[in-house]
Design a protein around this nucleic acid. Sequence first.
DNA 1: GTCTATAGCCAGATAGAC
DNA 2: GTCTATCTGGCTATAGAC
Lengths: 202, 202
Amino acid sequence: MKDEGTEDHILSAAEKVFQRKGMDGARMQEIANEAGINKAMLHYYYRSKRFLFEAVLSKAFSLIAPEINRVINDDTHLFQKIENFTPSYINFLQKHPYLPNFLIQELNRDSDFIGVLHSKKDFLDFQKFQEQVDREIQEGNIRPIKAEQLFIHLLSLNVFPFLAAPLIKGFLQLNGSEYKQLMEERKEEVTRILINYIKIKE
Amino acid sequence: MKDEGTEDHILSAAEKVFQRKGMDGARMQEIANEAGINKAMLHYYYRSKRFLFEAVLSKAFSLIAPEINRVINDDTHLFQKIENFTPSYINFLQKHPYLPNFLIQELNRDSDFIGVLHSKKDFLDFQKFQEQVDREIQEGNIRPIKAEQLFIHLLSLNVFPFLAAPLIKGFLQLNGSEYKQLMEERKEEVTRILINYIKIKE
DNA sequence: GTCTATAGCCAGATAGAC
DNA sequence: GTCTATCTGGCTATAGAC
C-alpha cells in the first residue's frame, strides 16, 4: 500500500494470495481484486502467472533467510540464541503466518523452483554460527555437535508444531485452546531440551 | 492393482496423483490414466473430484495414525520406543514418500477438511502412551514431562527434516548427498537428545 | 499505463450408446 | 459398468481502445 509503485503493489497482493492458496490454487483474478486493479495489469508487469509466482517465492526466501540469520548471527551467547529463537520465530509468524508452510510446500511440489533459490544470493550466513559452535566445543563448554545438526534441531522443534498443527490436533484430539496452551509451554521446553543436550555439566 | 475392485483401483490411482500434486494441482484425467480406465468412471464411483479427494485424505489419515500408534503403543520400554520411532518412520516414508507432506499441506489449506478427520474413529490411542510416561515419572526414572510434549518433540525432530529438506538445503547450501549424510547422523542424534532430556542420571 | 472485451484453452462433469 | 462424445464454466492470456 502507501507509496508503493504498482509493481510492488501487485507483488504484495500476490504474496497474500499465493501464500494462502499455493501456485495451483491461486487465481489471477483474486490477486487483481486484492490489489484493487485490473487483471490485465498483472500480465503487463509480470507477463505470466508463473513469473509472478516465482517473484513471490523468491521474495519469501529472501524474507525468511535474513530473519533466521539475524537470530543466528548476532553477538549474543550460544545459549542466548537458542533462547531467542522461539520468540523471534513466533513474532515472524505473526507477520507472515502462511510463509513457512508456503515455502516448504511449493519447494517440495516443483523441484524446478529450487533453481529460483540458487540464482539468489540471500543464503543464510552459516559460517559465523558454525565458528561459534566450534569455539564453544573447543573451550569445553558444550559437548561435540555439528552446527548443522543443532540448527536443524532448533528449526524442527520450533517450526514443525505450527506447520503440523491441524494434524497433531487430529492425532491428540485437541481443540484450539488446548493446543495453544501446549505451544505456550513449549517456549520453555524447546530451550531447555537443546541447552540441556549440549551443555556440559560441571 | 491385483484383485482390487474398480473402486479401490481408482482410489489407489487417486492417492498417487493427489499426494504428489495436491487437490488443486491434480487432474482427473491423470488419475484416470494412472488407473488405466476412463475419466467418466471416476465420477461414476466418486461423483466429484472433491469426494474422491476426501476419500484419499481420509485414507491417508487412517494409514498414518495406526502406524504411529503401533510404535507408541507396543510393549517395549519408553526409551526403546523413542529409539524405534526413527527407523519406523523412515520405513513408512519409503512406502508413502508424499503422505506426510500431503496431509499437512491439505489440512492447512482448507479447514473444512478437518471435519473429515473428526468423522473418523482412527484417532491415535494416546492413553496408553500417556500412562507409560506418567508411570516412569512416578517411579523416578524420568523427569516430569507432559506426554504430549514428548510426543511433539519426537514428531518434530523426525518429520520436519524430511518435510523441509529443500528449504534447509537452500539455507545451508547443501547438495543431495550431503543432506542425506546429515539425515543418517540424525538417527542417533534424535534418540540421544530425547533420552538425554528425560532420563534422570543416577 | 490502465482499462474492457474476448480469444482460446482446458478441466470437471454429464448424456447416452453399448 | 464401461465407454465416447460433448457440454459448460472458468481460467490464463492477449488485443486493442483510451
